[in-house]
Design a protein around this nucleic acid. Structure first.
Lengths: 226, 226
DNA sequence: GGGTTATGTCGCAGGAGTGTCGCAGGTAGG
DNA sequence: CCTACCTGCGACACTCCTGCGACATAACCC
């Protein structure tokens, strides 16, 4: 299987060295010289690894890392010009998976790329079917149907339901839902999730007091009927 | 969730610094000063991350990395005394996931540990088959099945059962269970584990007074039928 | 057998986890 | 400005869990 590596680097000489080394190792190489260009190509080509130079003209590499991480799980390796520990920490916090400092040893960089590839060797599923029993979600219109009839739900309710149905019966913890839907770091406010579940049940369950679709798993969280 | 970090390092001063920093970050810390000791503890405690000093007395850290990688997917971070690129490459090839060079910046090391934890958090449950005779554990739904029928168990009961079944018939001491499930340092309260085993037996055994699945090993602890 | 230790058994009380519901501030749209 | 709805919050009720203690029983040692 041919792996693709994306290189976002403005220095022509370094980019050339990287391309040569990567192609020698058997990778397909994509190149970009700016963050904007890089972001577009990543979304279009979905490479297996991205190398990002932090010092880019225009938008900083750090912002590129954040943008990538916001929409993708692709492994990101930072290439930074100096052993600037501050930049490195910021980069890793922004969601990067590793880094090398220039001037780097090509062999080491190749080893790191292999490590990241080994890590991410997992297939993802595509456009999923958001259906659970009589409940049907239409992501395009943000509508929830129940036995073919539309059920009015709020924005947050919709996302929680989508998250739960997307999990296909797995238990999701309150913390997980808070992070995925509300986006809190972990600023636990406690009962927000429970309240929302209660309201959801009133909308989608026949007998909200005895739920058959949206189930409680005491001590763990909530899940949809398998 | 409490994460455990294993430190294999023979230098007392460095080990102490690491322990302090890690505990400040909220991790549980395990220590070893030799590769042999480290290997044993890792197998027993299954930490979430392992820090390995390459320069260890006796067996070299590189061999420890290989041994660990042969039996476990635990993220390994190498700590090497000098910016010896050769050692680093060898370490990464041996299966390590990252490295830092001494003297290291504590903040950077902590960031790298977080990165590795985030990496390994996902595929954790996809793995092993938690089955023992008629008992079947479903980590996705936090349910326990017995001959295909669901048995209601509490959160702690579930984790104890998972720990026992995951041990595949090996004996687990009360202390081990306390630390892994309850998370106590080792503040032995005595009979908590026995009580829980009793309750578990009432739920999963045909004749709780004559257990055939969840066995007592007098003087050592408990184990599942092989 | 007698003494000692380890484990099984079981009830209880405090507490944790969750369901339920009303309230009030916020927000969007008219 | 008004209205309708959303949303976070807190209060109360209720169930179930869980650590503990006390006693019973079994295993071990001499």
């Amino acid at each position: 299987m041919i792996r693709t590596v994306m290189v976002v680097e403005d220095d022509d000489a370094i980019r050339m060295v990287l391309r040569t080394n990567l192609e020698d190792e058997g990778y397909r190489v994509l190149e970009a010289t700016t963050a904007e260009q890089g972001l577009l190509i990543v979304q279009d080509e979905q490479p297996d690894v991205v190398l990002v130079d932090l010092r880019l003209p225009g938008i900083h590499g750090l912002d590129l890392v954040r943008s990538l991480r916001a929409t993708s799980q692709v492994p990101i390796i930072i290439v930074t010009a100096q052993t600037d520990s501050h930049d490195v920490v910021a980069g890793l916090e922004a969601g990067a998976d590793d880094y090398v400092t220039k001037p780097f040893v090509a062999k080491e960089l190749m080893a790191r790329i292999r490590t990241q590839l080994r890590r991410s060797a997992q297939p993802e599923e595509g456009g999923e079917d958001l259906t659970c029993g009589p409940i049907e979600l239409h992501p395009d219109t943000a509508e929830v149907m129940r036995n073919g009839e539309q059920v009015p739900v709020s924005r947050i309710e919709f996302f929680v339901l989508a998250e739960l149905i997307g999990a296909k019966g797995r238990v999701l913890s309150r913390d997980h839902l808070l992070r995925k839907v509300w986006g809190y770091g972990n600023a636990g406010d406690g009962r927000v999730v429970d309240n929302l579940i209660y309201r959801l049940r009133n909308k989608i369950e026949d007998d909200p007091a005895n739920p058959e679709l949206l189930l409680t798993v005491r001590g763990f969280g909530y899940r949809m009927k398998a």
